[in-house]
């Protein structure tokens, strides 16, 4: 049996760990709140841009902007959103596992695809496996502003336009609720299906013409898809981290209870033994 002092020091260290995880849980909880609010603030923009894009794309059937047309796929781009730091439960692992499996199933060689990584964990994962990461961004803020990722978003869209790849998928963790996040695959480019929630499609007058508007609108639309996914996955990240930390705190509590029990037992055993020794000693004197 472990000595009294060993148990005592284990209890102290577990307590300290649980204080840390508790603090991290509360930090994540507040970030999660903000993350969900950011994702909500983005909705009106996304809906509007979707509506307009759908109206224009439906209104001008003959518009064959390169971003709307699927072409034979020689190379596929995967944009993978992960976090920069760990301690978020299975948040990163889930996303990375699914991307990796998909890639292994779909492609024979590393030349057939390229990776764009948002987040350090994802970048390191692919770098370790010798997969080429063409673009990366790390250190995205917890409440990212559009400007921060505009560069990588417009570069990704640009790589589709200049033919570096012929299809762009995005992988991220979709926020369902505080306790559940789902890994989602979304095809960003080409924009073959633009769905819209509102049914009222307006026919517009174009100034100067539909082609030139699509020229401005479609890249902006694709970039907002990427930004939307990032906000979504940030909300998931904080929710996942909050849950992971809550579980850690709960586990620490259980552990402390079990340890205190065996500490008390050991102490009682020591006292009992002392008494027995004294009684034995006294009996021997008589």
């Amino acid at each position: 049996m472990a000595s009294l002092r060993d148990i005592k020091s284990r209890i102290t260290s577990t307590k300290k760990t649980s204080q840390i995880t508790k603090a991290m849980e509360m930090v994540s909880a507040s970030k999660w709140n903000k993350g969900v609010m950011n994702a909500k603030a983005f909705v009106p923009y996304m809906e509007k841009i979707q509506e307009v894009t759908a109206s224009i794309a439906a209104g001008s059937q003959d518009a064959n902007h390169p971003m709307l047309v699927s072409r034979p796929v020689k190379k596929t781009g995967y944009l993978v959103i992960t976090s920069d730091r760990g301690l978020a439960g299975a948040y990163n692992t889930n996303v990375l596992r699914q991307v990796y499996q998909t890639i292994q199933n779909r492609h024979q060689s590393n030349d057939e695809f390229s990776i764009i990584a948002i987040g350090r964990v994802g970048r390191d994962f692919f770098a370790k496996r010798g997969i080429n990461v063409v673009l990366e961004i790390i250190g995205v803020a917890d409440q990212p502003s559009f400007v921060e990722i505009q560069d990588i978003a417009s570069k990704s869209v640009g790589m589709f336009s200049d033919g570096t790849f012929d299809k762009l998928y995005i992988y991220y963790s979709h926020y369902v609720s505080a306790v559940s996040q789902e890994v989602t695959e979304k095809q960003v480019l080409p924009l073959t299906e633009i769905s819209t929630s509102s049914s009222k499609l307006t026919s517009y007058e174009f100034e100067p013409n539909a082609e030139e508007i699509l020229e401005v609108l479609l890249p902006q639309y694709a970039e907002s898809l990427i930004y939307g996914s990032l906000l979504d996955s940030k909300a998931s990240e904080h929710a996942a981290r909050m849950n992971a930390m809550r579980n850690a705190t709960d586990n620490a509590k259980d552990l402390i209870n079990a340890l205190s029990l065996s500490y008390n037992r050991a102490r009682q055993a020591a006292i009992t033994q002392e008494i027995t020794e004294i009684v034995g000693g006294a009996a021997a004197l008589e």
Partner: peptide, 10 residues
């Protein structure tokens, strides 16, 4: 002005 026809412009 109010009453403009539906339009989109960059």
């Amino acid at each position: 002005l109010p009453g403009h026809i539906p339009m989109v412009a960059p």
